[in-house]
């Protein structure tokens, strides 16, 4: 059976920490970091990468366009 797996790349140093991607993620992949970036924001990151389906919701809702999404089909 084929499974879709995704991954995201966040521009963590520019992320403004608005959290909209975290709430938009249907798989709860994204969390906010405990540490802050150079603009003193807690940035978004993949806390549960294995759950990512590459649905692009997070990137679509990121106001600043700081998220890129990658997706592959994995044969199991």
């Amino acid at each position: 059976m084929a499974k879709i797996q995704g991954a995201i790349v966040v521009e963590t140093d520019r992320c403004k920490g608005c959290e909209l991607c975290m709430y938009a993620c249907p798989q709860n992949v994204i969390a906010m970091s405990d540490e802050v970036n150079s603009i003193t924001r807690n940035y978004a990151y993949m806390a549960h990468p294995e759950a990512c389906t590459g649905c692009t919701n997070c990137a679509t809702i990121c106001p600043d366009g700081y998220i890129s999404v990658y997706r592959v089909k994995v044969e199991e």
Partner: peptide, 9 residues
């Protein structure tokens, strides 16, 4: 997964 050929957004 993060490779140019897999970029979707």
């Amino acid at each position: 997964i993060i490779k140019p050929e897999n970029l979707v957004y």
